[in-house]
């Protein structure tokens, strides 16, 4: 999903780059692209948070295991 969205964002950027893209089409693409970028940032931040939580859980488990 992340890679697919990233690819679409790339396509949108390329579309915007084209001279024949009209302003209204450009705005439409920009709207789609900015939504995608936002969702991608969200996904990355969520992943980062998830990793932090998992690491904390792992550290805790390890400490308990070593205590035993």
């Amino acid at each position: 999903m992340f890679d697919k969205d990233l690819e679409r964002l790339n396509e949108i950027t390329n579309e915007l780059e084209k001279e024949e893209t009209t302003l209204s089409k450009g705005v439409e693409l920009y709207e789609e692209g900015s939504k995608l970028a936002k969702s991608l940032y969200e996904e990355l931040l969520n992943s980062k948070g998830k990793i932090t939580i998992l690491k904390q859980e792992l550290d805790k488990f390890k400490e308990e295991g070593l205590d035993k």
């Binding site: 964002l9 790339n10 949108i12 915007l16 990793i51």
Partner: peptide
Amino acid sequence: LNLKMKTAFNKVDLLANNLNKEVSNLIKL
């Protein structure tokens, strides 16, 4: 994983910047 995250952030940043740049260009044009 950190490297992957950083790369992914950079990619998204780059594309988001490009998106803004291209839309600015379009408006300018």
